[in-house]
Amino acid sequence: MAKYKSAKESIVSITELMQPSHSNFGGKVHGGYILNLMDQIAFACSSKHSQSYCVTASVNRVDFLNPVEVGDLLTLKASINYTGRTSMVVGVRVEAENIITGKKRHCNSSYFTMVAKDEKGKNLKVPGLIIKDKEAMRRFARSKERKLSAFKRDSKYDAKNFKIKEYSDFLKDENVKLEFK
């Protein structure tokens, strides 16, 4: 296996026609169905990069920007944005296309942290990422920043370190009623 690979070597794209069986009670394509497709393409991309079985460790924020209609062609694109020692961040972009008008809508983007595993379930080292342009460097740096921010946030709100007095004022204008002393 190569020590480093470019993101281009692992890019994956799928397109699927959205059918009535994919719809929710509101007549739009169910968000859970789209999330399932996103997880599948993140798996395919990370497995292609690492040449191993991968599991989803986390999903960073999924905002549904536009609804997906039954009858739309849904295209998902995935590429490796960041590589750690055993993990990869896969950027996933989802677009819907009206097959009659040809109009495309960006529906959401998200970042999946995937971890490579061996046959026994142990973490595997993954190839590093070759950065060839400014956009790839921006994506890598943004992913690293997101990882550091999550660590800081998790540490800040750790149950052992959390101080009620520090957050009482922080929550005073929120839709919450504090009833403990």
Score class of each variant (00 low, 15 high):
Ser6Lys: 07
Lys160Tyr: 05
Arg61Asn: 14
Gly84Tyr: 03
Tyr4Val: 11
Asp158Ala: 01
Glu69Gly: 04
Gln40Gly: 15
Lys152Cys: 06
Lys3Ile: 09
Leu178Phe: 15
Asp158Cys: 00
Ile41His: 02
Phe112Glu: 07
Ala44Val: 08
Gln51Arg: 11
Cys45Asp: 05
Val94Leu: 05
Lys28Phe: 04
Ser21Lys: 15
Phe140Tyr: 14
Met1Asn: 13
Lys103Ser: 06
Asp169Ala: 12
Tyr82Lys: 07
Ser143Leu: 00
Asp154Glu: 14
Gly84Met: 02
Val92Trp: 04
Thr56Gly: 11
Leu17Gln: 14
Val90His: 13
Leu148Met: 12
Val55Phe: 09
Lys48Val: 00
Asp169Ile: 10
Ala141Glu: 15
Cys54Pro: 12
Leu178Ile: 11
Ser143Val: 01
Arg138Met: 14
Glu179Asn: 08
Lys147Gly: 07
Phe25Met: 15
His22Asp: 14
Ser87Cys: 09
Ser155Tyr: 11
Val92Ser: 06
Lys8His: 09
Tyr111Gln: 10
Leu65Arg: 12
Lys152Asp: 11
Asp118Lys: 02
Lys163Gln: 12
Gln51Ser: 09
Arg142Phe: 06
Lys177Ser: 13
Asp39Glu: 06
Arg139Pro: 09
Val68Glu: 13
Leu148Ser: 08
Asn108Ile: 00
Ser109Ala: 08
Val89Ala: 10
Lys144Gly: 01
Thr15Gln: 12
Phe170Ser: 10
Ser47Ile: 00
Glu174Asp: 12
Glu174Leu: 13
Lys165Ala: 08
Lys181Ile: 01
Ala116Leu: 05
Ala150Thr: 13
Ala116Met: 02
Gly71Phe: 02
Ala2Ile: 02
Thr101Tyr: 07
Ser168Asp: 15
Glu174Thr: 10
Ile100Cys: 11
Phe151Ser: 15
Tyr4His: 08
Gly102Lys: 06
Ala57His: 08
Lys5His: 08
Val176Cys: 10
Ile34Cys: 07
Asn175Gly: 01
Ser13Leu: 02
Ile164Ala: 13
Ser6Tyr: 00
Asn60Phe: 04
Thr15Trp: 02
Ala7His: 05
His106Tyr: 00
Tyr82Ala: 04
Ser58Ala: 12
Arg139Leu: 15
Lys181Asn: 14
Ala141Met: 13
Ile80Lys: 09
Val70Phe: 04
Gln51Asp: 14
Lys172Gly: 02
Asn175Ala: 07
Tyr33Pro: 03
Thr75Cys: 04
Ser109His: 04
Lys163Leu: 06
Lys156Glu: 12
Gly128Asn: 02
Cys107Val: 10
Ile100Phe: 12
Ala150Leu: 13
Phe162Val: 02
Tyr33Gly: 05
Met88Arg: 01
Val126His: 05
Ser58Phe: 00
Glu166Gly: 01
Ser110Thr: 07
Lys163Glu: 12
Phe64Leu: 05
Leu124Met: 12
Gly128Pro: 04
Glu97Tyr: 03
Lys144Pro: 03
Ser23Ala: 15
Lys125Pro: 01
Ala7Leu: 03
Val62Phe: 05
Ala44Thr: 09
Lys172Ser: 14
Val68Gln: 13
Val62Trp: 03
Lys5Ser: 06
Asn108Leu: 09
Glu135Asp: 13
Phe170Asp: 14
Val62His: 02
Ser13Glu: 15
Ile34Gln: 08
Glu166Gln: 10
